[in-house]
């Protein structure tokens, strides 16, 4: 734990220096706040404005978690299906990769046309960005099973079902967690994008309102909020990972 704190010292210093330069520059050149607010002003808006954005944050958090859970479930389901039915995998997997080349920002308006402004299109957007990293990493985890272990299971007469649940599934856990970490950060981004489409609440809405009224300081607060939420989700997954795949972490040491 001490090691990771020490690692954070250097980038921390760089960050503080950058913010300091920014602060000094905006004072020295008297940059108007609607163009580029100074860091101290942003921090002040952030600290005093909780009443303005508090409900937006909680709305986004709810949306993110719901979408993330749906995306994760679908991702694991798809991975399991593709793994257990190889012909399906061969047919679908390349298309799956292809589908990831469609920018979500292009897809989002279409989803609004099809499903309106309710929760559904927003959840679809988040689930879409979440499920792919999980599917890919879980599939890899199922496949990268140790040959010796597989061999043992075959010699012991394990059924296909036992092979999957006793060997491939637990083997995939570390892989799934790396997918979850990526998805967790994507899901916040997905939520904000989906809120741009039209919503009553959410960080995305707060951001749109702020930029259209030239409250640039609030835009920066929104950006900071998105970053913090992403980090929080990421940290949460890391925490769960440490608990669940204890054997792997210690193996690496």
């Amino acid at each position: 734990m001490l090691g990771s704190w020490q690692k954070a010292v250097k980038p921390g210093i760089v960050l503080i220096v950058l913010l300091l330069l920014w602060e000094l520059a905006s004072r020295a050149f008297a940059i108007p706040a609607w163009l580029l607010p100074a860091p101290l002003q942003i921090i002040e808006t952030g600290l005093t404005g909780w009443a303005d954005y508090g409900h937006h944050v909680s709305s986004t958090v709810q949306l993110t978690i719901t979408g993330f859970l749906i995306g994760t479930t679908i991702g694991l389901g798809v991975a399991t299906g593709l793994h257990l039915i190889p012909s399906l995998r061969e047919a679908v997997y390349p298309l799956l990769i292809l589908s990831q080349n469609i920018p979500i920002i292009v897809l989002a308006p279409l989803l609004v046309i099809w499903f309106g402004f309710g929760m559904l299109p927003k959840l679809i957007v988040i689930a879409l960005v979440c499920f792919f990293p999980i599917t890919v990493s879980a599939l890899e985890g199922f496949r990268e099973t140790d040959r010796d272990l597989k061999h043992y299971m075959a010699m012991a007469g394990a059924t296909k079902r036992q092979m999957f649940f006793k060997l491939e599934w637990p083997n995939a856990w570390p892989y799934i967690f790396s997918g979850l970490k990526i998805s967790a950060t994507y899901s916040v981004m997905g939520a904000v994008i989906s809120e741009w489409l039209g919503a009553q609440k959410g960080i995305g809405v707060y951001m749109t309102l702020a930029s259209s009224s030239f409250r640039t300081d609030r835009v920066f607060v929104a950006i900071a909020l998105v970053m913090m939420l992403s980090l929080l989700f990421f940290g949460l997954i890391v925490l769960i990972e440490k608990h669940v795949v204890k054997w792997k972490r210690e193996e690496r040491d």
């Binding site: 012991a156 007469g157 394990a158 006793k166 637990p170 856990w173 795949v245 792997k248």
Partner: peptide
């Protein structure tokens, strides 16, 4: 398959199972 009990050259213990659960596998 499965008519003999087998011990491979590499121990082939499952890394996510404790000794207790490995033994029962």
């Amino acid at each position: 398959k499965g008519v003999i009990s087998y011990m491979p050259q590499s121990h082939a213990l499952f890394p996510w199972r404790t000794v207790w659960h490995n033994v029962l596998l």
